[in-house]
Design a protein around this nucleic acid. Sequence first.
DNA 1: GCGAAACGGAGGTAGGTACTCAACTTCTGT
DNA 2: ACAGAAGTTGAGTACCTACCTCCGTTTCGC
Lengths: 223, 223
Amino acid sequence: MTNARDIDADPPLRRDAERNRRLILDAAASAFAERGLGVTMDEIAQHAGVGVGTVYRRFPNKEDLIDALFVDRLDEVTQAADEGLAHEDPWDGLVWFLERSLQLQAQNQGLKELVSGTSHGRERVTVARERLVQKVRELVDHARAAGTLREDFDAFDTPVLQTMLGSVLDFSHDVSPELWRRFFAIVLDGLRARRDAPTPLPAAALDEHQLDRAMAAWKSPRR
Amino acid sequence: MTNARDIDADPPLRRDAERNRRLILDAAASAFAERGLGVTMDEIAQHAGVGVGTVYRRFPNKEDLIDALFVDRLDEVTQAADEGLAHEDPWDGLVWFLERSLQLQAQNQGLKELVSGTSHGRERVTVARERLVQKVRELVDHARAAGTLREDFDAFDTPVLQTMLGSVLDFSHDVSPELWRRFFAIVLDGLRARRDAPTPLPAAALDEHQLDRAMAAWKSPRR
DNA sequence: GCGAAACGGAGGTAGGTACTCAACTTCTGT
DNA sequence: ACAGAAGTTGAGTACCTACCTCCGTTTCGC
């Protein structure tokens, strides 16, 4: 007799199909990471070395593919929040989280787009995002209660902060991938309740050539 | 005898044409200001109450229209830099400029897109932008030399700073148009060489509802 | 009242992308 | 060995968006 689980479970994939599924997942992961959620399904198929039709056989649409790929990535960010929450000093915990989160987003353009509100992704991604937001609020509230974070900073300011630093990621990614650390350090100095002298900046400023390149590549959003 | 100027000068427009030219300029100015350079020529024509053909009769293409409209706006920003340069205290001058520049960009979405590097606009706009960049460098160098601006801040960091704060403008414009002032204040605290306690934040944080709306509307750039 | 200038706006053109489908290929259990 | 189910393919479809053109019609100025 077959039980409920056997009925629900899809039959195993044929060997070639399983291999292609992996190729697609790998290609999609690296394409989304490098160039964001805007990559076309055709590009993903080409990278995977299969036809577009094959991609659509496995993943009915693009959102489903994103969903399958990014739940784990978002969980990594949530885990960073948990690690931050576990720190003894709440300020250190907040900084730990912000830095790790930004670093993950710097490594993964698609994750960045997902974290900062773009409506991409399906239910599982949305749920993961909400869990994250909750934890980040705790993190901020603790740091403020401890008195290291300036008092007038609000938990609802954090997504704006992330968007703001995320734009530095976009701006300079191709030209100086670590530049965000400079501005993160500046912002942190601005977030501390008290401070005597600035914390040294961790990355080099852009030079003229890099700046030109970044500005030329920068496209503003909106409709 | 007709001199060189008469030969170069276009014959005056017919009365109706002149009237429409103004209608188009006005409609384009407010559309670009409110919704950015992405507005379509058809929208502009409709706002002006004329046909698209009429717009194209006066302005051969969209770039020319942008050019005609934005040279003056960019000069306003440059003027703010000059005013900043005229301040007695170089730090106050820098803050004056940044605040005024951001404020102008907050009022004019199109200006914001033009200032932060998008390749829109033709030669006259490009020239105006370069003049501006030069002045901003002076401003930064003075403030650093005076010792109020942190030493490790570089003149080439300024466009990144503007992009960063510009993203706050994009993020919250529809929901809380003054929010940028909060983050501007935070960043300024991070830019000061020394400081005891945080400067009070000038705008309210977003509430949950506003944040949801902003996140939903936020689209990331890239291809 | 005539000719030149200006107008309007439907449609041409170009570019881009998610997704489909019918003909073909590969796998697997017997 | 082979049947037929499962899988593959990629040109094609459907759809969108936005700049710009064209030409029949209207308005202006002399």
